[in-house]
Write a protein that binds this DNA or RNA. Structure first.
Lengths: 237, 237
DNA sequence: ATTACTATGTTTCGAGTAA
DNA sequence: TTTACTCGAAACATAGTAA
């Protein structure tokens, strides 16, 4: 898909679309350069050049006569249009509502500090940052936010495996990269076992979020899923 | 559709597609300018500028942080993608086989000369050129060519009305603009009444085609329908 | 009418670099 | 590491004009 498009060809591809709109994908069409230029909002000269470039690329056939240029889109050119259409279709079909939720800040049981310290090494390795020892607890603000939370939990995550440390077994967890208030990068961590209900999200970040964002209990903040292609591969150290 | 695209925005629209392929239409996505530049095959600087321009156009939201730029496609930007997709869908769905046929040159009853002279004025007015007094007769080369001929005859045509001239009534006819051998502009004329069968096409042009193309009986040539938006309105004089 | 060449103006790109 | 500024270079657009 991406390989199908040299960047230099962007303008040309749009000219090709305009030609197709004139019917050049079905048959020879008369396209005087002056008129084609006005369609492209370019000069007669540029339209002429563009038709020649399209021919050079093999996207159109071109016959110049005294009354003007006749052009037809080739199979190669038509395939470009099909390719672009398919790329767009794939994008549009994959559209889902943005995955974000708003949560109400509350004070939890205070275990965050302890657990984050136990998991610190593996979290740092998996996440690429050293987590502040403590989680920010959020309760879904509305029923929609609860649904968003469930939707997030259904997605593939950064897996934190269970392991043994300090003589005790530590459960597994799953992490999702998020942006907090559009400004601070962090992860939402979903422990295998938790004291909280499914309407609660726990957020980890490199810094203390309450301080960084000036938060107090009852504040409502936005947490939004982010994607980094390298989420799973990034294991530096 | 066309109004939806300022020409200056072509490159930007493609950048938007690339962003969508990264998932930016669903959620915030991390797009460091260096990496985005390599996706677009542009420099880090240009990628940075393009992200700022996309934001200016209102097609994306953009949050710059220490680790890079986070971006998300806005509803406005998404609508551009939908618009482009719809334009392409309309084009692709309207695709039909090119309307062309190959015909075998033969010598007819020799009435062409006489009839073209009778119709000369009205033909010149309707077609925009002064027809050579004589038609080139073509017999469909294969059954596919016959089908193509029938398909052409089913399309809307340039109508030559019946009229009275030199004391006799002249039948109506219908004309289709064609390109002969990709080089010569002419029309295929379908008289209301004819001595020929439905496998025969009669071609008119400004010049004598046998001479211009060096044709003799038995030669096979290509005749292809062409479209000129102004076909029906062009009645100069 | 056309197309398209040449010369010139304008925009876009990216290396260097600051923050 | 980032983003993004400056400014010289490259690419692109068009007016004038020939054919």
């Amino acid at each position: 898909m991406a390989e199908a498009l040299e960047r230099d060809d962007y303008g040309l591809l749009f000219a090709l679309i305009r030609l197709a709109e004139l019917g050049a994908h079905k048959s020879l069409v008369k396209v005087p350069t002056e008129k084609f230029g006005s369609i492209l909002r370019l000069s007669q000269q540029s339209a002429s050049r563009i038709l020649r470039l399209l021919e050079q690329r093999g996207w159109i056939e071109r016959f110049v006569s005294r009354e003007g240029t006749y052009a037809r889109i080739t199979n190669g050119g038509f395939e470009r249009l099909i390719g672009l259409h398919r790329d767009l279709a794939r994008i549009l079909e994959s559209r889902i509502e943005p995955i974000a939720f708003r949560g109400i800040v509350f004070t939890g049981f205070g275990e965050g500090n302890y657990y984050v310290k136990l998991y610190r090494r593996v979290l740092r390795d998996k996440l690429g940052f050293d987590p502040y020892p403590g989680t920010l607890n959020l309760r879904a603000a509305t029923i929609e936010d609860l649904k968003a939370l469930e939707r997030i939990r259904s997605l593939p995550a950064i897996e934190i495996p269970s392991f043994k440390g300090r003589g005790r077994s530590l459960g597994s967890a799953r992490c999702y990269r998020v942006a907090v208030e559009h400004r601070v990068r962090g992860v939402m961590i979903v422990p295998e076992r938790t004291h909280y209900g499914r309407d609660v999200a726990e957020i980890l970040a490199a810094e203390r979020l309450r301080e960084k964002l000036g938060l107090k209990d009852g504040d409502i903040i936005t947490v939004e899923l982010t994607f980094e292609e390298d989420s799973l591969s990034k294991a530096k150290g």
